[in-house]
Design a protein around this nucleic acid. Structure first.
Length: 581
RNA sequence: GGUGACGUAGCUCAGCUGGAUAGAGCACCAGAUUUCGGCUCUGGGGGUCGAGGGUUCGAAUCCUUCCGUCAUCGCCA
């Protein structure tokens, strides 16, 4: 258990004692009791709202309760002072021993510092990317991909069992268009003059697939029946498109566990099965839905169609599952797909979708509610658009061929580590600007540089220390008994380091990996600040010749910082730089 | 028209899910260092948290009504 949690435990113990004595009937929610870093310096090192939470439950004065709690906590060897402030905050000043223990804990846990177990081995299905196999990934997909990948690492770090899943839309009408386009490319390569219809994919990226078709089949496809030919091209092109997408993902350090094929699901009759299951529950009927009011549909005709009664589960209208021509809507396979996820026994189901799917969320929730037999946590994370900026201009990503920015092209300019970091530098539901020039700049404006630079500085300090034969240490076992005194800028860094487990916990609990990025920037800032102060005064240097004990204290502090930076970046899927480029 | 998200400093955004005097970076102003790494650090000004109402000891956070932006509401996935 991390040191801040130990502190929290002590507080909870005192609260529990008090609850027993006051003979409290209703249970109080201990999760509401937090131990946090206060904003202001004079408010101590940590503070807790315990007395106020308890005050509410007991409906008595928080300040009186605070007095009692603080009296009980005073004995703890970790605490040097407690004061009761404001409406009932307990502001705690930590004894120096606390920091030695923190450092010991970080170094002995090393790459497991911050690890949690509250996931309890629960099974999570995390679906992300799920781009159609009709073209390479674009920047919007990348944001979702990175988000999902980092969330999966984060959830595993706190004890969940995560299945990373990609839903392959290989069954819809888009694929028909893909097949047709590739066939036209194929004919074009065979020397025919082709005019491409509006309903086709214009990008050059399909040409290599057409070439591969020729390698394999020569001009034989021309002689086959349309059905036979389409079948061949269909599986051939999906396979190759998915290879391109997988390669893109791999170059971003992203690997999926499972590719779930829509077509395979359709072939297994899963849609009919789940629809009839819903029918049995009385959730399917034939009816007419109204045209949306604020929008003009020139060719709107009221039609009877097959509907899913999602309003039963708080959706605002019932949702069509068959088109007028009798084929399934997009929603129908997705409905079956989510039923399938539940069948596989997941405890947590998370979809990472583009923000243009926002209108889709409530019907998916309805599906989950209609099918779930046990308590399943379902969440849709919507990822907003990414604007690519170069030379202070927005690069438009239209579907016309020339404007399509390939991931591989972007990777020629910036590393995948940079892309990953930037993609998480905003909350997922806020649009993001990806400024290429900024990401190439070597200054603190560039957050990736800033964090890496802190790490590189640490590595460089160790190099120097090794030359002087004071590093590495053989062991740090007694560090918790050192009783060092720490100066202000060291304390600031230590406090930042102590926040790490809580940052992990919060990010994982709320599925918000961007918090890790913010934290790392703050941590780097604390480190740079300390590093800088060493130029102001010799005692602040990491390597002080003639004082081995001081060196050790400072080097272990640097080491602790390195560990946390590494752990943080590792959740982001980034390897820190030892030397700046 | 319905639904959802968003609206916080000049700009870009955090804000630990109801806590203390609302924070950070950029930009601007003033300084320090250039030695372990190009850089970085320190300080300063700057706010009606879109607007009104409500809930309570306490609201940027919860409820409600408006305003604005975006997305979405049937054959595009």
């Amino acid at each position: 258990m991390d040191i801040v949690n130990i502190l929290r435990d002590k507080i909870l113990n005192s609260v529990n004692q008090l609850v027993d004595e006051r003979n409290l009937k209703q249970p109080i929610n201990m999760n509401n009791i937090v131990v946090e870093r206060p904003k202001k310096q004079h408010q101590g090192d940590y503070s807790t709202n315990a007395a106020m939470v308890l005050g509410k439950a007991l409906s008595s004065n928080p300040r009186d309760l605070g007095e009692i709690i603080s009296l009980r906590l005073r004995d703890s060897e970790l605490i040097s002072n407690i004061s009761l402030d404001g409406p009932g905050f307990l502001n705690i000043t930590i004894s120096p021993k606390f920091w030695d223990r923190l450092i010991y804990e970080i170094n002995s846990s090393n790459n497991r510092y911050g690890e949690e177990s509250f996931g309890g081995g629960k099974k999570v299905n995390l679906e992300y990317v799920s781009a159609n196999p009709t073209g390479p990934l674009h920047l919007g997909h990348v944001r979702g991909a990175v988000f999902g990948d980092v969330l999966s690492r984060l959830l595993e770090f706190v004890g969940f069992k995560v299945t990373r899943e990609y839903y392959v839309n290989d069954g819809g009408t888009q694929i028909g268009i893909l097949v047709r386009t590739i066939y036209l490319r194929y004919l074009e390569k065979l020397g025919e003059v082709i005019e491409f219809p509006d309903e086709s994919y214009p990008g050059d990226y399909l040409i290599p697939i057409a070439e591969k078709l020729i390698d394999k089949y020569g001009n034989k496809l021309k002689n086959l029946s349309e059905v036979e030919r389409d079948n061949i091209i269909r599986s051939f092109s999906i396979e190759h498109m998915m290879e391109i997408i997988k390669a893109d993902l791999k170059s971003l350090n992203i690997e999926m566990d499972n590719f779930f094929s829509e077509q395979a699901m359709i072939d297994s009759n899963a849609i009919d099965k789940s629809i009839s299951a819903l029918k049995d529950k009385g959730l399917i009927y034939t009816g007419i839905i109204d045209a949306p009011k604020g929008k003009i549909y020139a060719d709107w005709k009221a039609r009877e169609q097959l509907l899913f009664k999602s309003t039963e589960f708080d959706d605002d209208i019932d949702r069509p599952i068959k088109k007028s021509d009798g084929s399934w809507t997009y929603f129908a396979p997705d409905l079956a797909y989510h039923a399938d996820k539940l069948n596989r026994g997941f405890d947590v189901v998370i979809d990472v979708l583009g923000a243009d799917h926002s209108g889709y969320v409530s019907r998916l929730k309805a599906v989950i509610n209609a099918f779930a037999e046990k308590n399943v946590e379902f969440e849709v994370k919507l990822v907003q658009l990414v604007k690519l900026i170069k030379n202070k201009k927005v690069l438009k990503m239209s579907k016309r061929a020339g404007d399509y920015i390939l991931i591989q092209d972007l990777l020629k300019e910036v590393s995948s580590d940079v892309i990953r970091f930037v993609m998480l530098s905003r909350n997922n539901d806020i649009p993001l600007d990806f400024d290429i020039d900024l990401m190439l700049s070597k200054s603190k404006d560039n957050p990736v540089f800033y964090v890496n630079y802190a790490h590189a500085r640490i590595v460089s300090v160790f190099k120097r220390a090794e030359e002087l034969n004071i590093w590495p240490l053989s062991k740090i076992e007694n560090f918790e008994k050192k009783n060092y005194t720490y100066m202000d800028s060291e304390l600031a860094l230590l406090k930042k380091l102590s926040e790490w487990p809580n940052v992990v916990k919060q990010s994982a609990r709320y599925h918000e990996p961007h918090r890790i990025v913010y934290y790392l920037s703050e941590l780097a800032s604390s480190f740079h600040s300390l590093y800088q102060s060493s130029t102001d005064s010799i005692p602040y240097r990491f390597i002080v010749e003639g004082s081995k004990e001081l060196c050790i204290k400072r080097l272990v502090l640097a080491k602790s910082t390195q560990i946390v930076i590494k752990n943080g970046l590792s959740i982001l899927g980034i390897v820190p730089l030892d030397e700046m480029y």
